[in-house]
Simulated assay, not measured.
Amino acid sequence: MSSNASLERWKRRLAKVPLDVRKAASATALSEADGLASAIKARAPRDDGALQESIRTESGGTGDRWYVKAGGERTTRPVREGASTTYDYALGQEFGNAHVPAQPFFWPTYRMLRRAIRNRIARAVQAAARKTFET
């Protein structure tokens, strides 16, 4: 198995960042992820409400990454009655299928907000770094 040199370099650089700065970045990222999830919920198609309820924020494991996800158990249904194969209709809503045209709600919202999200996280990191290194 080959190693990813750029990932290892990134991990070494990240380890040098002070803990206060990492905490500020993580807190801001969580806040921004929650805001993005709320915006996506507002744009999601409304049928029985399961799609909106499936939109959530999840930790990337270490607490420094946050993911906004839609779909999952709540929106997974059999392909047709009596079939054992299942289909996540959140994907059908976003991308369409042979029977239904796409009704995108997730990616357009992300694309619309991503620059502002990145800027707010960057400002929070800069402020935390400034505060850390001034003392």
Rank of each mutant, 00 (worst) to 15 (best):
S2V: 13
S2H: 07
S3P: 00
N4E: 12
A5K: 07
A5L: 11
S6E: 13
S6G: 09
E8A: 13
W10A: 14
W10D: 11
K11Y: 03
R12N: 10
R12S: 09
L14V: 08
L14Y: 12
L14P: 02
A15N: 14
V17H: 01
P18Y: 15
D20A: 14
R22D: 00
K23M: 14
A24T: 02
A25F: 01
A27F: 08
L30G: 02
L30R: 09
L30M: 08
S31M: 11
A33F: 05
A33S: 14
D34K: 11
D34S: 09
G35F: 04
G35N: 13
G35E: 05
G35M: 06
S38E: 12
S38H: 03
S38N: 09
S38M: 00
A42E: 15
R43F: 03
R43W: 04
R43P: 03
A44H: 00
A44W: 00
A44T: 05
A44S: 11
P45G: 09
P45H: 10
R46F: 10
R46H: 14
D47R: 11
G49E: 07
L51D: 03
L51A: 02
L51Y: 00
I55E: 01
R56P: 03
R56S: 10
R56H: 12
R56T: 15
E58H: 08
E58K: 10
S59C: 10
S59G: 14
G60V: 13
T62V: 07
T62D: 15
T62L: 11
G63K: 04
R65A: 14
Y67I: 13
V68Q: 00
K69T: 06
A70F: 01
A70G: 12
A70M: 07
G72Y: 01
E73Y: 05
R74E: 04
R74S: 08
T75V: 01
T76D: 03
T76H: 02
T76R: 04
P78Y: 05
E81K: 13
G82A: 10
G82H: 09
A83D: 15
S84E: 14
S84P: 03
T85V: 08
T86I: 08
T86N: 11
D88Q: 05
Y89S: 02
Y89K: 04
Y89T: 04
L91V: 03
G92N: 05
E94W: 00
E94S: 00
E94G: 02
F95R: 01
N97F: 09
A98H: 10
V100R: 13
V100T: 13
P101D: 10
A102V: 05
Q103G: 08
Q103E: 15
Q103S: 15
P104E: 07
P104F: 04
F106K: 00
W107V: 11
P108M: 12
P108S: 12
P108Q: 11
R111D: 14
R111F: 12
R111H: 15
A116E: 10
A116P: 00
N119L: 06
N119G: 08
R120W: 07
I121L: 08
A122V: 06
A124S: 14
Q126C: 00
Q126G: 09
Q126W: 06
A127S: 13
A127L: 14
A128G: 04
A128D: 01
A129W: 11
K131W: 08
T132E: 07
E134F: 03
E134M: 06
